[in-house]
Amino acid sequence: MGKFSGRRALVTGAGAGIGRGVAIKLAQMGAEVFALSKTEANLSSLKEECPSITAITIDVSNWEATREAVKKITPIHMLVNNAGTVKLQPFLEATPENFDLVFNLNVKAVMNVSQIVASDLITRQLKGSIVSISSQAGQRALKDHTVYCSTKGALDMMTKVMALELGPKGIRVNNVSPTVVLTKLGREAWSDPAKANPMLARIPQGRFAEVEEVVNAVVYLLSDESDMINGHMLPVDGGFLAA
Results as ranks from 00 to 15, higher is better:
109 A>Q: 10
75 P>F: 02
70 V>I: 11
117 V>M: 07
89 Q>R: 15
68 E>Q: 13
96 P>W: 05
75 P>N: 02
88 L>H: 10
97 E>P: 04
74 T>E: 00
80 V>G: 15
82 N>I: 04
103 F>M: 13
100 D>E: 15
106 N>P: 00
113 V>S: 03
96 P>M: 09
73 I>V: 12
111 M>I: 08
104 N>Y: 06
102 V>K: 08
98 N>S: 12
90 P>M: 11
83 A>I: 08
108 K>M: 09
106 N>F: 00
85 T>P: 00
78 M>F: 14
111 M>N: 12
94 A>L: 04
67 R>Q: 13
94 A>N: 14
74 T>M: 14
79 L>D: 02
98 N>D: 15
101 L>Y: 05
121 L>M: 06
84 G>P: 02
99 F>P: 10
121 L>N: 05
109 A>H: 11
91 F>Q: 04
115 Q>E: 01
71 K>M: 13
116 I>T: 15
74 T>A: 05
68 E>G: 09
116 I>G: 04
112 N>E: 07
99 F>H: 14
111 M>L: 12
95 T>K: 06
112 N>W: 02
78 M>C: 15
67 R>H: 09
68 E>H: 10
95 T>F: 03
95 T>Q: 08
73 I>Q: 14
101 L>G: 04
95 T>S: 15
96 P>R: 15
88 L>R: 13
73 I>Y: 14
90 P>L: 10
85 T>I: 11
77 H>S: 13
107 V>M: 00
116 I>C: 09
107 V>K: 02
121 L>A: 05
66 T>M: 07
120 D>M: 04
97 E>Q: 09
116 I>S: 13
95 T>H: 03
72 K>T: 03
110 V>K: 07
121 L>V: 03
118 A>G: 06
95 T>N: 05
82 N>T: 07
120 D>H: 12
102 V>I: 12
84 G>F: 05
96 P>Y: 05
97 E>K: 12
92 L>W: 07
85 T>N: 08
121 L>T: 07
103 F>H: 14
88 L>G: 07
76 I>S: 03
109 A>R: 06
106 N>S: 08
114 S>W: 06
77 H>W: 11
90 P>D: 15
105 L>C: 08
74 T>G: 00
72 K>F: 00
86 V>Y: 00
74 T>H: 02
106 N>I: 01
100 D>R: 15
102 V>E: 15
108 K>L: 14
93 E>R: 05
81 N>R: 01
99 F>W: 13
90 P>W: 00
121 L>C: 10
86 V>W: 00
67 R>S: 12
114 S>D: 04
116 I>P: 07
114 S>K: 09
111 M>G: 10
76 I>E: 06
66 T>W: 13
86 V>N: 07
80 V>R: 08
112 N>A: 11
82 N>K: 08
101 L>D: 12
95 T>G: 00
112 N>Q: 09
77 H>P: 06
86 V>F: 02
74 T>F: 01
118 A>T: 08
110 V>T: 13
88 L>Y: 14
66 T>N: 11
120 D>Q: 10
74 T>Q: 01
77 H>L: 01
94 A>G: 09
118 A>N: 01
119 S>M: 10
71 K>V: 14
72 K>Q: 10
84 G>H: 04
110 V>L: 11
79 L>K: 02
98 N>W: 04
82 N>H: 11
114 S>E: 05
100 D>G: 05
105 L>R: 02
97 E>C: 03
76 I>H: 06
113 V>I: 01
99 F>C: 15
